[in-house]
Design a protein around this nucleic acid. Structure first.
Length: 577
DNA sequence: GCCGTTTTCGGCCCGACTGTTTTCAGTCG
């Protein structure tokens, strides 16, 4: 049976082939929109079809519904087969080379018979491209360079790398040029887990000086383009950085526009057109009258739409809610009263108990759970039961000394391969709070891994599952899980799932958080700090929670300790009984 | 190919930069 992904891939290939054949771009877009819908579905298409609800999916009409049915029934689509005969997959692949779009790929295919990136590279090396109309030596050289770049570059840059680089650019430009406002836009501002490039917006009295300064940034490997308002450079680590200078009165318009997402903007502009308004990066207009654009709010207000924060702008319903006048009410850093996952140098942390608690206190937290590793984490100096008890005594002593923060004696206990926890129950019973997580056997089957977590959730002592999928963005895949089953069990047992703030983890991710809220699973946002400065990572966890539409009420550690402790105790008693 | 509190037909977001053009097409975001 064809999966949702299979159907989406066929639609995407059709879109590319139609683009190559010079078809109506809106028809092309219809296939891409449909693919996007399919990729976001929770449920198999076959189920939706069985219920006769294909037509209720956004972007699916009579024609595409019939094509989905054909693919589900036969595993293929005649239209797709025919298109692939006319345009071999390699021809579409040439469009992945930057600077080669559908028209160029079509010309290369028709005039030179090129059917793959390899053949394109060969032809460029032999100087055969410049014979074509509209091609020159420079185009040829660019294509070669871009093919080389395509081969070496990492497809997406994890937020963990992109965010610090963007901050660096901002600091360096402030120092090197007369910059007034400067802000990162793009997917970085929306805090997606990885980004394609870095977009920086600037206002300045001397745009030319800013553009020049960008080309001279210390990490610039190559200047890709530079004009009076936009400069694109490639960093040494192959990250593209785009810097745009805009007039101060347009800053809000540009920020809104370049923050996106593309889908959010398309919908917004479509609504604007219906109201006789026009949006661009230069403002919002009725005819020739400019209604605003200095701030982002000015871009939404004339449309009668409440502005939602950048993390929400993914066209997941935020525009409709803003239009209906429902104000945004999402979790912010200031709502968090405590951190429930913190390490010390007793296991693999870098700082002492006292130093970590002090850092948490300075941050404004009124409680903090110290959760070092259990014995199974030998390489992280996991605590024996005796050391864990000694730490608990140390915590009680410190609690008598400190007045404005309370320390919880906790542990991040390993979930063993079989789903049992890495301390005996009598030890777990002594803890104020118990987190558990998977640090081993990442490649069990979906069934085994699901059973493993379900068994852990059954433990009467478990309060929180930390970084539930174990994924590392761009490095390690999440463990295979039937997330819906795990979450249903977690909701039933009132076990919370963590949103881990490490930018490499962001685990749960936004899609899981949306599902957790739907299923009524309690959530916590933790830093998993291993050093005092790691509390700064909280912003990534909070942003991810917002991407999952989490409100303060969804997040357990927004409540005061006086409410949290009884809840933990009650839960433990209920589960033991 | 989709879609509708302007429309069941005629819309579907818009501007900057590049290269090769002597006025603009193609690509990108």
């Amino acid at each position: 049976m064809a999966t949702n992904y299979d159907v989406a891939r066929i639609f995407l290939e059709i879109a590319e082939a139609l683009e190559l054949s010079g078809q109506d771009p809106y028809r092309v877009r219809a296939y891409r929109n449909a693919a996007r819908t399919l990729l976001s579905l929770e449920e198999p298409l076959a189920e939706i079809r069985r219920r006769g609800e294909l037509l209720s999916l956004p972007g699916i009409g009579e024609s595409l519904a019939a094509k989905i049915a054909e693919i589900l029934d036969s595993g293929r689509l005649r239209q797709h087969d025919e298109l692939m005969e006319h345009f071999p997959p390699g021809v579409a692949a040439m469009m992945h080379v930057p600077g080669v779009g559908p028209r160029t790929a079509q010309t290369l295919f028709r005039e030179l018979g090129l059917t793959s990136v390899e053949e394109l590279e060969h032809a460029a090396r032999e100087g055969r491209l410049r014979a074509l109309k509209g091609f020159g030596a420079k185009t040829e050289a660019n294509i070669l360079q871009n093919i080389a770049r395509l081969r070496t570059r990492r497809q997406r840059i994890p937020l963990a790398r992109a965010y610090p680089l963007a901050q660096q650019v901002i600091h360096l430009l402030r120092a090197a040029a007369p910059v007034r406002d400067i802000e990162a836009a793009g997917s970085l501002r929306r805090m997606t887990e990885d980004v394609g490039d870095i977009d920086i917006l600037v206002t300045s009295d001397d745009p030319a000086a800013v553009m020049a300064a960008v080309t001279r940034l210390p990490f610039v490997q190559r200047v890709l383009a530079t004009g009076p308002t936009k400069t694109s450079v490639l960093s040494e680590q192959d990250v593209q950085v785009d810097v745009r200078v805009v007039a101060p009165e347009n800053f809000g318009a540009a920020l809104q526009y370049f923050t996106g997402s593309k889908e959010h903007n398309v919908k917004l502009r479509t609504l604007a057109v219906r109201q006789g308004l026009k949006l661009s990066e230069y403002g919002i207009f009725r005819g020739d009258t400019r209604l605003g654009g200095a701030t982002e709010e000015e871009m939404y207000r004339p449309l009668g739409i409440l502005m939602y924060p950048p993390e929400l702008r993914e066209d997941r319903g935020e525009i409709e809610r803003g239009l209906a006048g429902v104000p945004p009410d999402f979790v912010e850093e200031r709502h968090l009263r405590g951190d429930l996952h913190v390490h010390t140098n007793a296991s693999d942390g870098r700082a002492s108990l006292r130093a970590m608690v002090e850092a948490a206190r300075e941050r404004g937290f009124t409680y903090v759970a110290i959760s070092d590793h259990s014995p199974a984490r030998g390489n992280a100096r996991g605590l024996s039961a005796a050391r864990l008890r000694a730490q608990a005594r140390e915590i009680r002593a410190l609690n008598r000394e400190l007045t404005d923060i309370t320390i919880l004696a906790a542990s991040e206990v390993d979930i063993r391969r079989d789903g049992t926890l890495d301390y005996p129950d009598d030890v777990l019973a002594e803890l104020d709070l118990c987190l558990a997580s998977v640090h081993s056997a990442f490649n069990l089957s979906r069934e085994e891994q699901t059973a493993r977590l379900l068994r852990a959730i059954d433990s009467p002592f478990l309060d929180i599952i930390a970084h539930p999928t174990g994924r590392l963005v761009g490095t390690r895949d999440p463990i295979e899980l039937d997330m819906r089953r795990v979450m249903t069990a977690a909701a039933a047992h009132e076990v919370a799932l963590e949103i881990n703030s490490w930018p490499e983890r962001l685990d749960l991710n936004d899609a899981h958080i949306l599902l957790a809220r739907e299923l009524g699973v309690p959530l916590v946002i933790d830093t998993d700090a291993h050093a005092p400065e790691h509390f700064d990572n909280l912003k990534f966890g909070v942003a991810t929670a917002r991407r999952g539409w989490a409100t303060p009420a969804d997040i357990l550690n927004t409540i005061p300790l006086s409410q949290l402790l009884p809840r933990l105790r009650r839960n433990r008693l209920r589960k033991a009984a």
